[in-house]
């Protein structure tokens, strides 16, 4: 069953009327199935993050269609869109910039609950209880809810971001390079936690990364994006063992870790 359908989406930016256009996305089509972890791999500037903004309807595509659970995002009214936002959440790459430095962890994690009163947390006391639960879920202690983000390490902040993303029991999470800013050891902890949460909570992931190794580890299916176009798409095993496009081959051979694995493979 498909959750997200992206159909020939094009996004063009131009700063002023006379300046040249920048094509960020050029006819991108993708399907994301419920319950899977879909990996999207590309270099910086390839259009990965633009795509995530379009899916969240923070910007509108120049042309093409994005349908979430069968409903076209551009056709939704404000209230419908607000309700839909409760079902999809995002975790950004930079946990330093994505948390408001003037809010406590409690207020940050409770914010989705406050924005969406229909989720059943109108009462502040219930929100605080829920925040405590969520912090436990991501491996933090409930007592730390009264601290400010700058008192945490990068990995801990990313856990706060994940707790915040989980607050409304969403079904779909966009993970926009969630571990790229972290130390390798912390990366592994966060990745394993994300995988565990996915099976436990039945989440669907769009995992955006430039790191082939990470994507290979977490994703079921993967798409490669280059200069705003999807150049290859398929199940992880297939794309990594028998890449069809030149770009995929270049990328895989450029990754020392994967090249080594290919050499050692029987």
């Amino acid at each position: 069953m498909k959750l997200l359908a992206i159909e020939s989406v094009r996004k063009v930016y131009r700063s002023t009327a006379r300046s040249a256009e920048v094509v960020a996305l050029d006819g991108v089509s993708l399907m994301i199935e419920r319950g899977e972890c879909f990996g999207l791999v590309g270099e910086s500037g390839s259009g990965k993050s633009t795509l995530s903004r379009l899916i969240l309807n923070l910007e509108a595509p120049s042309s093409g269609r994005i349908a979430y659970d069968g409903r076209d995002l551009t056709s939704l009214g404000q209230e419908e869109m607000r309700r839909l936002r409760a079902r999809m959440q995002i975790v950004f790459q930079d946990p330093y910039a994505s948390l408001n430095p003037r809010m406590t962890v409690h207020d940050l994690v409770a914010e989705p609950l406050a924005i969406h009163p229909e989720a059943g947390y109108r009462d502040r006391g219930r929100r605080t209880v829920r925040v405590g639960e969520l912090l436990g879920t991501v491996g933090l202690k409930p007592e730390h809810m009264w601290r400010y983000p700058h008192e945490f390490s990068g990995g801990q902040r990313q856990r706060v971001c994940i707790a915040r993303a989980l607050a409304l029991n969403p079904e779909f999470l966009i993970l926009d390079e969630p571990t790229s800013a972290l130390d390798v050891s912390v990366q592994a902890q966060i990745l394993n936690m994300l995988l565990e949460l996915q099976t436990r909570l039945g989440l669907t992931y769009l995992f955006i990364s430039h790191d082939l190794g990470v994507v290979r580890y977490v994703a079921h299916r993967v798409a490669l994006i280059h200069n705003g176009r999807i150049v290859e798409e398929g199940p992880v095993g297939q794309v990594f063992s028998a890449p069809k496009s030149d770009y995929a081959r270049t990328l895989i051979s450029a990754s020392p870790e994967l090249a080594l694995q290919a050499l050692l493979a029987p």
Binding site: R85, Q89, I90, S98, E111
Partner: peptide, 13 residues
């Protein structure tokens, strides 16, 4: 700032 974008993505008014 990213945290404002994040709040917009949550549906903040």
């Amino acid at each position: 700032e990213l945290f404002v974008l994040a709040a917009r993505a949550l549906g903040a008014s």
